[in-house]
């Protein structure tokens, strides 16, 4: 699927540009995008080091395990294939917590940590395991309690009540998360039965 989407985005873009006389912009557009991708990954190095360092401290001190005992049962229900005492559990829980608190730049490093722990459990290292797909579903819907960025944007735009969207945001992101998780389970069932037939 990713192959089709990737080619579709580029092919449609280039052909559309050619038809509308914008073909000369495509070269700069591609090069600029490549450059900003590299810039972005360099920008990530700092926060990545910071949060993975803090996470390591929390892990060694047993805090992650304590958190895992506390909300582990819920997470175990969402990730049935992950053993209860596996380090992936702790990383998943930290990611969800950071997401809920709206700690934008901490979420990515923690999420990557969770993914790499899930990758250790994955048999086929090239394709995503069901648990990894579930993790992705959780992160893309990003259940948030504190949408700090949006509140700031609204305040900057001169809103009378910048935080009035906190309630709706919570409700909507909860609904979207639940739907994504259900859909994820359905896909999981469909895909695993198809693999068995092959």
């Amino acid at each position: 699927m990713i192959n089709y989407i990737w080619v579709l985005l580029m092919a449609v873009g280039i052909i559309y540009a050619a038809l509308n006389g914008r073909i000369d912009q495509m070269t700069t557009s591609a090069i600029n995008a490549a450059n900003s991708a590299v810039g972005l990954s360099f920008k990530l190095i700092g926060v990545m080091c910071l949060w993975l360092g803090v996470l390591k401290i929390a892990e060694v001190a047993g805090m992650v395990r304590a958190l895992a005992v506390l909300i582990g049962p819920v997470v175990h229900y969402i990730f049935p294939s992950v053993p209860r005492r596996h380090p992936a559990m702790g990383a998943i829980i930290m990611t969800i917590s950071a997401n809920m608190m709206g700690l934008g730049n901490a979420v990515t490093p923690l999420g990557i940590k969770a993914m790499s722990e899930l990758q250790k459990l994955n048999k086929d290292k090239e394709s995503a395991s069901p648990a990894m797909c579930t993790m992705l579903a959780l992160c893309t819907t990003g259940f948030t309690l504190v949408p700090a960025t949006i509140i700031a944007i609204r305040a900057a735009a001169g809103s009378v009540s910048p935080a009035e969207i906190v309630g709706p945001t919570m409700v909507v992101s909860f609904i979207a998360t639940v739907f994504a998780l259900v859909f994820d389970r359905v896909c999981q069932a469909v895909f695993s039965s198809r693999n068995r037939r092959l």
Binding site: M1, M115, E126, A128, C133, A137, F183, D184
Partner: peptide
């Protein structure tokens, strides 16, 4: 970050 190149159905879910 973990080298997975086949995201399978997860794009659709997202």
């Amino acid at each position: 970050a973990v080298g997975v190149v086949k995201p399978r159905y997860s794009i659709a879910v997202g």
